[in-house]
Amino acid sequence: MAESPAPARRREPGLTASRWTTVRRLVAEHPGAALGVTFIVVLVLWSLFGPLPYDPRGTDGSASREGPSGTHWFGTDGTGGDVFSRVIEAAKIDLSLALAGTAVALVIGVPLGLAASTKGKGSQRLVRGLDAFQAFPLLILALALVSLSGNQLYMVVVAIALLNIPRYMRLLRSEVLAIRESRFVEAATAMGASTPRLIFRHLLPNVWGVILVQTSLTIANSIVVLSSLSFLGVGVSAPTPSWGSMIRDGAGNMSSGEWWIATFPGLAVLLCVLAFNQLADAIGDRTARSYR
């Protein structure tokens, strides 16, 4: 993902860098993003295929609230569940819901944003409407939607999408309005390019970078929203482990010194968000706008 938006800048015939060299250069230029991507990839692969030391849904009455040790790396929670196994397992549901919500927002928000990127009255009214929508406390809206639906997981995806569609629309609109004024779009019009050609050959390729940056940030934000929801007991429910609900379960134990129950899932959220933010930064650097 890190290398896809950047066009080969130093394209020299006969001097094309091999894939491996390109990867090494990218890693050297964006160490934070490389570390973040590695973390996410390892986490995802482990949660999907990796062997877990204990059953993440299991309990063990004889070993509740044990501190981190050689047997339980991240300790155990109140019912004796292995925190490490649960943190890894939770990545499955947390990341897939965050990704799904972001994907829906992207697929709906980008075309709507393109459609709204005119200077007409209607498009300006639409933006005002989005302002009003975004002024609404969105986490509350998501909370209401999910609880009203009877804790349906698809509603979590819908809620994340609803929160982010307006952001994509605004971003696309402001970017595309600027590019529409550019000389090369005028040149394309002058040569007789059709509207689909203008959109797919001239507008979209020049906003891809910002779309990718926004997507990376949206994933990070969705992880936080999702964790907040499950912290509040909405969305993912027991026995499926999720980081938010684990933090809630462990919050009560913090005062009694059993810090590991809430801290490790909290760290997982923190690292994921950091990773996607680093990735967004790197993509932003590599696709710095050059049409002006």
Partner: peptide, 8 residues
């Protein structure tokens, strides 16, 4: 420069 699409 401005009249050429930078990505093409």
């Amino acid at each position: 420069y401005e009249s050429l699409n930078p990505r093409m």
